[in-house]
Simulated assay, not measured.
Amino acid sequence: MISIDSTIALQGVTDKRVENIESMEGSHVIKGAAMSQQANIILPSRFDYGYHKEFQRQCTEHLDNQSITGIVFDFSRVEYLDSAALGMMMMWQRRAVAAQKKMMIKGAKGATAQILEMANMKRIFEYI
């Protein structure tokens, strides 16, 4: 664990409230001053069923963590996205609602952003 007192930038996002960061494989947990935490799941360039087990592991870990209030799916690296990935996102969104946690999308661009738009994900996920 790294403790930080000053403003930091993580994956292009600056958060002046950040006190410390815990780094995990493929994800980061951002802790704010009010102890409200967001987990950042960094998705791979190919987001399809082949990523299922890792995606499930990270989502389960973050949803089970009582101190995490939101999960951010970071699409900044995603170049390919299929219907299996959309289905996984929907399944975990339902579980997040049941656990009273928010799921958000950030960094989608190009064809990935178009697919998310066609799937009407803005209606279901908050975009940040």
Rank of each mutant, 00 (worst) to 15 (best):
M103H: 07
I128P: 06
A113E: 08
Y51C: 02
I42N: 04
M89G: 13
T60E: 10
A96W: 05
S27N: 08
Y49M: 14
Q93H: 15
E61W: 11
Y51G: 01
E22F: 00
I21K: 00
A99D: 12
K102L: 07
E19P: 06
K106P: 01
L10N: 08
T69P: 07
Y51L: 03
V29C: 08
P44E: 11
V97R: 14
D74Q: 07
D82G: 01
K101D: 01
S23D: 01
K31N: 12
E22H: 06
V97P: 00
P44A: 11
S3G: 05
I21C: 01
E126T: 08
T112I: 05
A34V: 04
I4N: 11
M24Y: 13
I21A: 00
N65T: 12
E79L: 08
G26M: 00
R57A: 05
I68T: 04
Y49W: 15
R94A: 03
A84S: 13
A111W: 00
H28W: 11
K101F: 03
A108T: 07
Q100Y: 07
H28K: 09
R46L: 04
Y49I: 02
Q11D: 15
K53Q: 09
A113Q: 05
K102P: 03
A98D: 09
G110N: 08
A98I: 06
A113T: 04
L116W: 15
D5S: 05
T7E: 12
R57P: 03
G110Y: 15
G32E: 10
K122W: 14
A119H: 07
S83N: 11
E54P: 00
N120I: 02
V72P: 02
M104I: 10
I68A: 10
L116T: 02
M103D: 10
I68R: 05
V97W: 12
L86P: 00
E79T: 09
Q93M: 03
S67L: 05
F75S: 09
A33Q: 14
N120C: 09
T14Q: 00
Q56K: 13
E61Q: 14
F55K: 09
R123P: 02
D15E: 15
W92S: 01
E117H: 03
A85E: 01
I105D: 04
V18S: 01
Y49S: 06
I8K: 12
N40M: 15
R123K: 14
L63D: 11
S45E: 14
A108M: 06
A9D: 15
V13I: 12
L43I: 14
M104N: 01
G12D: 15
Q66M: 05
S27F: 13
I4D: 06
E61H: 02
F47K: 07
G50T: 13
T112L: 02
V18C: 14
E19G: 14
Q114I: 12
E19S: 07
N65A: 08
K109I: 06
S67T: 15
Y49R: 14
G107S: 04
M90L: 10
V78N: 07
A98M: 07
A98F: 07
I42Q: 03
